[in-house]
Computed example of a mutant assay.
Amino acid sequence: MTDVNPTVRPDPGRPDRRAELAVGLARVRARIADACAAVGRDRTEVTMIAVTKTYPASDVLALASLGVVDMGENRDQEAAGKAAEVAAAGATPRWHFIGQLQRNKCRSVVRYADVVQSVDSVRLARALDAAALANRDRPVDVFVQVSVDADPARGGALPGSADPDAGLDPVAEAVAGATGLRLAGLMAVAPLGWEPERAFARLAEVARAFRTAHPEAVALSAGMSGDLEIAIEYGATHVRVGSALLGMRSRLR
Rank of each mutant, 00 (worst) to 15 (best):
I98F: 01
M48V: 02
A84G: 08
D120V: 07
L66N: 09
S65I: 02
L101C: 05
D114R: 13
D114T: 14
K53L: 02
V86M: 11
L63F: 03
G67A: 10
K105H: 04
A62V: 01
D76C: 14
R107V: 14
R94G: 12
Q102T: 06
A57I: 00
A89D: 06
V46C: 07
A91N: 02
A83F: 00
A64F: 03
T44P: 13
L101A: 05
R103M: 06
S65C: 09
R75C: 13
Q100N: 12
R75T: 12
M48K: 02
Q77K: 14
N74V: 09
G90E: 01
A84E: 05
Q100A: 15
Q102C: 09
V68G: 13
A64P: 08
L61S: 05
M48D: 03
G81P: 08
N104K: 05
L61G: 06
A80G: 15
T52C: 08
A62Y: 00
N74Q: 10
Q100P: 14
S108Y: 11
G72P: 09
Q117S: 11
V115H: 11
S118E: 06
N104Y: 00
Y112R: 08
I49C: 12
A125D: 00
V119I: 09
S121W: 01
R126P: 13
H96S: 11
K105G: 09
L63I: 03
L124K: 00
A87G: 14
D59V: 04
D76E: 14
R94H: 15
R126L: 13
S118Q: 06
A89V: 00
A62T: 04
Q100Y: 13
V110A: 10
A79S: 11
A57H: 00
